[in-house]
Simulated scan of single mutants.
Amino acid sequence: EEPPGSGYLASRSMAALRAVAEAGGRAFVFTHRRGYAPAFRCTQCRLVRACPECDARADKAPACARCGSTLGPCVACGAGSFEPLGAGAERIAEQLARSLPVGMVGSDERIWVGTERDLPAVSDVDLAVIVDADGLVHAPNYRAAEDALRLMARVAETVGSGSSRRAMVQTSRPDDPVIAALRRGDPQEFLAETISERATTRLPPSGEVLVIELDGTGVADEEIRRLAADRAEVFGPAAHSGRHRWLVQGADLRAVRVGLRRLVQSWRDAGRRVRVDVDPLEL
């Protein structure tokens, strides 16, 4: 367990990387791809920040982007400071370069720091280090956990065969179902639990989600809620990128989609900008 603020790489990871480099081996250090929407965590207790009302992953904003509820301090320790999970490849490479002998870090050197786009070119390494599994598992989209498992499995596959070769995963939640599935090398239990959870929350593939973004509100909130009626749950409006945002969620939204077409046309006829996203990746 590393104290908060101790750097992107834990001491055990640094020691393992140094040992591989000094032995003439090769290592791959994996971090999030460029443009990844980060999750945020408390700088004191490391709890991943989430909305207390709808449980959506939250950033540093004062209000939830999903339902518009006010976000306060950390619900676990009361601290008011949050930091993004993960770091870019350049920052991690800089930390490694400061700690290891000159010439050890780089795509043509002993230690390569890269992202998802680099994985096809990486193979048969002695050590792979996943810098921040939490940032993958708890990213602000409902597919984050399954995507994280798929991606971390790909990183683990870059390690060559041999008893001295291994993959290391940095996480503050070693008992997380995703980490457990990766450790077992068997995703079946995790996937079954995920499907069951989706059925409860009515998220795809067990349900449908619509995101509506509109200039201004007016009577739109009343219109959307009347359209959803007893067929779906409505979250919002929340401020999002200069517009107002609603999330409509239910087991079967076919009737809602039909009625929404008429609403969208009426809003556009009135000169309002509107965007509808079906089953979005990010909520």
Rank of each mutant, 00 (worst) to 15 (best):
E1H: 14
G5Q: 02
G7P: 05
L9E: 09
A10P: 10
A19L: 11
E22N: 08
G25I: 01
R26D: 02
A27F: 07
F28K: 05
F28Q: 03
F30K: 05
R34S: 15
P38Q: 08
A39F: 04
T43Y: 07
Q44W: 09
V48W: 06
C54D: 03
D55Y: 11
R57G: 14
R57A: 14
R57W: 07
R57V: 15
K60W: 06
C64W: 10
G68P: 08
S69A: 15
T70L: 11
L71K: 04
P73C: 12
A76L: 11
G78T: 03
L85E: 11
G86T: 01
E94Y: 09
P101C: 10
M104E: 07
I111D: 03
I111E: 00
G114R: 01
T115W: 02
L119A: 08
P120E: 03
A121V: 01
V125F: 10
V125I: 11
V125K: 02
L127W: 04
V131I: 09
D134E: 02
L136K: 03
A139D: 02
P140S: 01
N141S: 14
L149S: 04
L149E: 07
R150Q: 11
R165S: 04
R166M: 12
S172H: 13
P174Q: 11
D175H: 12
D176L: 06
A180C: 04
R183G: 11
P187Q: 04
S196W: 06
E197W: 10
A199H: 10
L203H: 08
E208V: 09
V209R: 07
L210P: 11
V211F: 03
E213M: 11
G216F: 07
A220D: 12
D221W: 06
E222L: 15
R225D: 01
L227M: 15
R231W: 03
R231C: 04
G236P: 02
P237L: 12
P237M: 05
H244A: 13
L247E: 12
L247G: 02
R254P: 00
R257C: 06
R257L: 09
G259Y: 05
R261M: 11
Q265F: 05
R275T: 14
D277A: 14
P280V: 08
L281F: 08
L281R: 15
L283K: 02
